[in-house]
Deep mutational scan, measured.
Amino acid sequence: RKEMTAACTPRRRIINLTSVLSLQEEINEQGHEVLREMLHNHSFVGCVNPQWALAQHQTKLYLLNTTKLSEELFYQILIYDFANFGVLRLSEPAPLFDLAMLALDSPESGWTEEDGPKEGLAEYIVEFLKKKAEMLADYFSLEIDEEGNLIGLPLLIDNYVPPLEGLPIFILRLATEVNWDEEKECFESLSKECAMFYSIRKQYISEESTLSGQQSEVPGSIPNSWKWTVEHIVYKALRSHILPPKHFTEDGNILQLANLPDLYKVFERC
Rank of each mutant, 00 (worst) to 15 (best):
R1S: 14
K2D: 15
K2V: 12
E3S: 10
M4V: 08
M4A: 09
M4N: 12
A6Q: 10
A7S: 11
T9A: 10
T9N: 11
R11D: 14
R11K: 10
R12Y: 13
R13T: 10
R13G: 10
I15F: 12
I15W: 15
I15H: 06
L17P: 07
T18P: 04
L21W: 15
L23A: 13
L23N: 14
E25V: 14
E26M: 04
E26Y: 13
N28H: 05
E29W: 15
E29I: 10
G31Q: 09
G31N: 11
H32M: 09
E33R: 14
V34C: 11
V34M: 13
L35M: 05
L35N: 09
R36I: 13
R36L: 14
M38Q: 09
L39P: 14
L39D: 15
H40A: 06
N41A: 05
H42F: 10
S43Y: 13
S43K: 06
F44W: 08
V45N: 13
G46H: 04
G46R: 01
C47P: 13
V48A: 13
V48L: 03
Q51P: 13
Q51W: 08
Q51A: 06
W52D: 04
A55E: 01
A55R: 00
Q58K: 13
T59D: 08
T59H: 09
L61W: 02
Y62V: 15
Y62Q: 06
L63P: 00
L64M: 06
N65A: 02
N65T: 00
T67H: 09
K68T: 04
L69H: 09
E71W: 11
E71K: 07
Y75A: 12
Y75R: 04
I77K: 06
Y80K: 02
F82P: 10
A83D: 14
F85Q: 04
G86M: 10
V87R: 09
L88I: 09
L90H: 00
E92A: 10
P93Q: 06
P93C: 07
A94Q: 03
L96W: 00
L96S: 00
F97T: 02
F97V: 03
F97L: 02
D98L: 10
D98P: 03
D98I: 14
L99W: 01
A100F: 15
M101Y: 13
M101C: 15
A103V: 15
L104G: 00
L104E: 00
L104N: 00
D105V: 07
S106Y: 04
E108C: 05
W111F: 10
T112V: 05
T112G: 08
G116S: 15
G116W: 15
G116D: 03
P117G: 15
K118Q: 14
E119I: 10
L121R: 01
A122N: 01
E123I: 14
E123W: 15
Y124I: 10
E127Q: 03
F128L: 03
L129G: 01
K131D: 13
M135H: 04
L136T: 04
Y139L: 06
Y139T: 06
F140L: 06
S141K: 11
L142E: 01
L142Q: 00
I144F: 07
D145R: 01
D145G: 04
G148D: 10
N149I: 08
L150A: 01
L150W: 01
I151C: 06
L153S: 00
P154C: 00
L156A: 02
Y160L: 05
Y160S: 00
P162C: 01
P162V: 01
P163A: 06
L164Q: 03
L164D: 03
L164E: 03
E165L: 05
E165T: 04
E165W: 03
G166D: 14
L167E: 00
P168V: 01
I169H: 13
I169F: 09
I169Y: 13
F170A: 00
F170E: 00
I171K: 00
R173K: 09
L174A: 01
L174C: 02
A175G: 03
A175E: 00
E177K: 01
E177T: 03
V178H: 01
V178L: 01
D181M: 10
E182R: 04
E183G: 05
K184R: 04
E185V: 02
E185H: 04
E188H: 09
E188M: 05
S189P: 01
S189H: 06
S189D: 04
S191C: 03
S191Q: 11
S191L: 02
S191W: 03
E193N: 03
E193M: 05
C194V: 12
F197H: 11
S199A: 10
I200G: 08
I200V: 11
R201V: 12
R201L: 03
Q203C: 10
S206N: 09
T210Y: 05
T210L: 07
S212A: 07
S212P: 09
Q215L: 09
S216D: 05
G220R: 08
G220P: 09
S221A: 08
P223I: 05
S225V: 08
W226A: 06
W228Q: 07
W228E: 07
T229H: 10
T229P: 10
H232P: 01
I233V: 11
V234L: 03
L238G: 04
L238V: 08
L238A: 07
R239G: 14
S240P: 08
H241D: 13
H241T: 12
I242F: 12
I242A: 13
L243K: 07
P244A: 13
P244E: 15
P245V: 13
P245N: 11
P245F: 15
F248M: 04
F248K: 14
F248A: 12
F248I: 08
T249N: 05
T249C: 11
E250I: 15
D251N: 06
L255W: 15
Q256S: 04
L260F: 05
P261S: 13
D262E: 08
Y264F: 06
K265G: 06
K265I: 15
R269F: 15
